[in-house]
Design a protein around this nucleic acid. Structure first.
Lengths: 198, 198
DNA sequence: CTCCAATATGACCAGTGGTTACTTCTCTCG
DNA sequence: CGAGAGAAGTAACCACTGGTCATATTGGAG
C-alpha cells in the first residue's frame, strides 16, 4: 500500500493519498503518536513541508485518516444491515471485528482531539452520526420500535458494543482475548439486551 | 491544589506529589498532550530533570496520574456498592458522573499507551481489574448470579456503561449532553439489560 | 562533624510541529 | 507555441519536547 520508489518527477502526482496511505501504515505498525507528520512525509518520500499543501495541520492529516477509517466501518456495518437475515448479534460482531482488526484506527476515530473546535461543521462528527444512524435503522427494522423507545434501544446497543470494543482494544484485562472470542462475547452481551421498556 | 510559591530550600520536600498535582491540573485545564513533562515541572517550579528522580519517564508520570484517577473512581464505585439500597442504575450513574466530571483523566485511565509493555506487572491493569471486580460483586449481590452467567452479566453492564461514558466524553454527537442528562441516560440504558440467559 | 546518597541543576542532543522565502514544474490562455 | 500564473515542491529556521550527562546542593545517618 505504501509507495516508496523515489519518484522521477519533481511533482508527486497524488501526494495527498500517498500521505494518507503512509500515515495509515505507520498507524498500523506502531503507536499512534509515532505518526509524526514528518515521519509520514519521509515515508512518502517528500519533504515535510510538502504535506502542508494538502493538509492544514498534523491534526488535519490525522482527521483525514480517521475519516477514511470511519468510511470502512460504515461499509462493513451497512453490509450487515443490508442482509435481512442478520441479527443484532451479527452487527455487534461486525463492529468488534473492525475494532480488533484496526485497533489504532479505531481509537483514532474517537479521539476527541481530532474534532474541530467550537461549532464548526465537523466531518468526523458527521461520520459518527452516520454510523449511529445505521445502527438505529437496524434496530428499528428488527424491533419495530420508534420514537424515544427506539432512541433508548439503539443507544443501549451502540453503547454496549462500543464499550466492549474499547475495552478489548485498550484494556490489559481484555486485550488478551482473541479477536474471534471477542466477537462471540459481543453476541453474548447483546443477547442480554431487551428492547423496549421493561 | 497546585502549590506555586517559590520554595525556600534547594530540596522540594514532596516533589513527587507536587508533580502529580501539577499534571492533574494541566490535564484539567487543557488537552491531554499539553501535559508535557517539562510543563509539569515548570508548574511545580522545578527544572524538568528533577522529575526524573521521581518518575522513569513521561509515560511513567502519566501512568501515576491515571492510577490516582483510578483510585478516585474506585472509591466512588465502592461507596455506591456499600449502600445496600443502591440499584444497577445508581452504579451506572456514578460511573458516568465520574467520566463527565474528569473527562481527560477518564480517557487517560484507559490509554493503551500507558500500559507496561509485555507481561510486566502493570498497576494500571490491576486498577482496572479492581474496578471490574467491584462491578462484578455488585451484580452478583443484586442478581444472585454466579459463574459464567455472572461473568456475562457483569461484562454486559460494564461494557454498556463504559461505552456510554466514552461516547459522551469523546463523541461530538453526545458531547453536548449535560452531565445530569448523561446520568439519566445511563439509568435508562442499564434498564434495558436483563441479567441471566434469555 | 563528616561524608554520602538523594535530590536538584544547566548544558546538550535529536526529533517534532510549524512558518517563511524560495524554486520547480504544469497547464491554461493569448 | 510559448509566456507566465499558480500549484506543488524545497531548505532554512524557530520554539518546543523528551531524554541524558556531568555537576552542584543539601539533609541526615554514622
Amino acid at each position: 500500500m505504501s509507495t516508496s520508489e523515489p519518484r522521477a518527477s519533481y511533482h508527486h502526482g497524488d501526494l495527498r493519498n500517498a500521505l494518507l496511505d503512509a500515515a495509515d501504515d505507520l498507524l498500523s505498525e506502531g503507536s499512534a503518536d509515532g505518526v509524526a507528520l514528518r515521519a509520514v512525509a519521509r515515508r512518502a518520500g517528500v519533504s515535510h513541508t510538502a504535506a502542508y499543501n494538502h493538509f492544514e495541520d498534523r491534526t488535519d492529516l490525522l482527521r483525514a485518516v480517521a475519516l477514511r477509517a470511519f468510511g470502512r466501518l460504515q461499509t462493513d456495518l451497512e453490509r450487515v444491515a443490508a442482509d435481512g437475515a442478520s441479527t443484532v448479534g451479527d452487527i455487534a460482531a461486525a463492529y468488534l471485528r473492525y475494532a480488533t482488526g484496526y485497533p489504532r484506527q479505531f481509537t483514532l476515530m474517537f479521539d476527541r482531539a481530532l474534532c474541530r473546535p467550537d461549532g464548526e461543521e465537523d466531518e468526523l462528527a458527521a461520520a459518527g452520526d452516520a454510523a449511529s444512524a445505521t445502527v438505529r435503522g437496524f434496530v428499528a427494522a428488527r424491533t419495530g420500535l420508534s420514537g424515544e423507545e427506539l432512541d433508548v434501544a439503539a443507544l443501549a446497543l451502540w453503547a454496549q458494543v462500543h464499550g466492549l470494543a474499547t475495552l478489548v482494544v485498550e484494556t490489559p484485562a481484555l486485550k488478551s482475548v482473541a479477536p474471534e472470542a471477542a466477537e462471540g462475547i459481543a453476541r453474548a452481551l447483546s443477547a442480554q439486551l431487551v428492547f423496549g421498556r421493561p
